[in-house]
């Protein structure tokens, strides 16, 4: 059942190779695919041109003289309004935010999901329902009380505070993902382990964990892309020296002082999108399965 998604096309059978129907289908798909690819193409082309060439040429033409200087500048010299260190600081901040957040949020959510799927207790469904509904509350409603909480804990403005925020707000979708996955595992396994006297943690670590590596991979993909791409929490809960990459990108691009260096901006944009894009292209099918499983079965 876990594989309902994409086990094969099921439309009506194709008839002739070059029928009008096929031309229409492939024509539409190719046009749409081009529309989707254009921004990526434009980003790369612009980032490889020098400023003078950008001023005279059009954004679709490939560079006459390719240069990697904009990339170097974006990485180490671009100005954000505060300093001119480029994106590198933001990159490392994002790494320092994403790695612990992903680990902590998945650990907690998987245990939650396991308790909900296999050890239901009174009230569990109630809390789960609140968690699910809570996922739809706009962050803006909870953002300020969270500031107060973090300030009281002495974590406001620190990376630890932001990790905590990501763990809390990542919980609904991850808990749902794990709960649904654990619920599809055969119950006999669980019962047999119980009969053997294995306890709550024993079953989690020795049976559930080894059986659910795919869903852990899906969760990692979801969380790495989600947290890497976060902007709002980064702005609100950290100070400028800890700003993640997305916030720095915005500051670099939308800084109004000086000449606008479009090529540097585009190089910075690609650099910021690189990590989620890499994850997406490497893990394609699992990424798709993750968002499909999370939503369709919910």
């Amino acid at each position: 059942m876990a594989d309902i998604a994409f086990d094969g096309p099921r439309g009506s059978k194709p008839r002739h190779r070059l029928s009008g129907r096929n031309i229409m289908i492939y024509g539409t798909l190719i046009v749409v695919a081009l529309y989707y690819l254009i921004p990526l193409y434009v980003m790369v082309m612009t980032s490889l041109k020098g400023l003078p060439e950008i001023r005279v040429g059009n954004i679709f033409s490939p560079p006459v003289e390719a240069t990697f200087e904009p990339w170097v500048k974006a990485w180490s010299q671009a100005c954000t309004g505060l300093n001119c260190e480029g994106l590198q600081r933001g990159f490392w901040n994002s790494v320092r935010i994403t790695v612990p957040s992903v680990f902590l949020s998945i650990l907690i959510a998987s245990i939650n999901g396991y308790a909900l799927a296999n050890w239901r207790f009174r009230g569990a469904e109630f809390f789960f329902a609140i968690l699910m509904i809570g996922a739809f509350i706009p962050y803006q409603v909870m953002i300020y009380p969270m500031v107060i909480l973090l300030r009281e804990l002495g974590l406001y403005g620190s990376l630890t505070g932001l990790v905590l925020v990501h763990t809390v707000f990542g919980m609904p979708i991850l808990t749902l993902l794990f709960r649904n996955y654990f619920a599809t595992l055969p119950e006999e396994l669980f019962k047999a382990a119980r009969v053997d006297g294995t306890g709550f943690w024993g079953i989690y670590f020795r049976i559930m964990l080894p059986l659910s590596l795919p869903i852990f991979v899906v969760a990692v993909i979801l969380q790495v892309t989600g947290i890497w791409n976060d902007f709002l929490f980064g702005v609100v809960y950290t100070k400028p020296e800890y700003y993640p990459m997305t916030v720095q990108l915005n500051n670099i691009v939308n800084t109004t002082t000086g000449v606008r260096e479009y090529n540097v901006n585009m190089a910075a944009t690609i650099l910021t999108g690189l990590v989620p894009l890499l994850i997406y292209f490497v893990s394609g099918r699992l990424f798709v399965r993750g968002i499909a499983a999370g939503a369709v079965k919910g």
Partner: peptide, 12 residues
């Protein structure tokens, strides 16, 4: 191709 933008940040 149709899904890759979904992996990107809104800022990007």
């Amino acid at each position: 191709v149709l899904l890759y933008p979904f992996a990107l940040s809104f800022v990007v």
